[in-house]
Simulated scan of single mutants.
Amino acid sequence: MELKEIQGIFHKELDNQFGKEEVSSFFFMLTEHFFGVSRLTLALKTSIQLTKSEQSIIYDALSRLKANKPIQYIIGKTHFYGLDFKVNEHTLIPRPETEELVQWILDDYSKVDDKLSVLDIGTGTGCIAISLAKNLASAMVDAIDVDENTLKVAHQNAISNEVKVNFILQDILAVTDLKNYNIIVSNPPYVRDLEKEQMQQNVLDHEPEKALFVSDDNPLIFYEKIAKLAFTCLSDNSALYFEINEYLSDETKELCEACGFKKVTVKNDIFGKPRMIKAKM
């Protein structure tokens, strides 16, 4: 069967579910990943044939898309801050907003000559820690996560991106003290249970719940713990960075101030939503 015919089947089966443009994007992500066939290649060579085994691969991907499995899990990787990251069911898929958090840190520290120490709490794929290690040449980077399987993926990502990160299996809620750091950053779970109805089905069905959700009665549990720990181990020229729930920006700012931070800045993302905080002594 020609690949062009299968493209038509993708649109017939998925357009109502995702929209034509999204389906086109999915299709070419799959053909490039599995067969090395780009959008341009198919436009120039419209009669590309797939073998039976290749057809089986692409139809399996179609079935998983129909079941709302994220495309990143199907191809097993995603892009973040110009780097490739392996992802699987143990890891949250990195979001573009988190790239903005990384950029904020780099804007503040990329010209600092001193050797920096960095801690990423709840590292997941390692996207924040690895991106910082890649772009802050002299930085010593530690990264904590509570899940052993998640850390295995993060370690593989560090190797493939040729950076050194010290990964630590640890539950931050059980930590009583931290060593001194110049930068502490975290994108902890922050989606309240009451907000689940706003989430896309592919996220609810496939991404790890413990990396996303917190209870309605204590939604800032991770922020409070991390802010208290950070206040004891950051110096005057250091900073704590959070990705935050846009609906709880005021509460998160007040929490950081209650923990002792004197200068707390809320930053909007490119869509104008309050999604990041920086807290300094």
Score class of each variant (00 low, 15 high):
E2V: 02
L3K: 00
Q7T: 01
F18L: 03
E21K: 15
E32P: 01
F34A: 07
G36V: 12
V37W: 10
V37C: 09
L40Q: 13
T41H: 06
T51C: 06
Q55A: 01
I58M: 06
Y59H: 07
Y59L: 13
L62F: 12
R64K: 09
A67M: 14
N68Q: 07
N68G: 01
I71N: 00
Y73G: 04
I75H: 00
G82W: 12
F85K: 03
P94W: 02
E100G: 07
K115D: 11
K115C: 07
D120V: 01
G124M: 13
I128W: 01
K134Y: 06
N135I: 11
L136P: 11
A137I: 11
A143E: 07
D145F: 14
H155R: 12
A158I: 03
K164E: 15
V165R: 10
F167E: 11
I172W: 02
I183V: 02
I184G: 11
N187L: 06
L194F: 11
K196T: 14
N202F: 03
H206N: 10
K210E: 13
L212K: 14
S215M: 07
P219D: 10
F231T: 08
N245K: 12
E246N: 07
D250C: 03
T252R: 04
E257A: 09
V264R: 02
R275A: 02
M276Y: 05
I277Q: 01
A279C: 12
K280M: 15
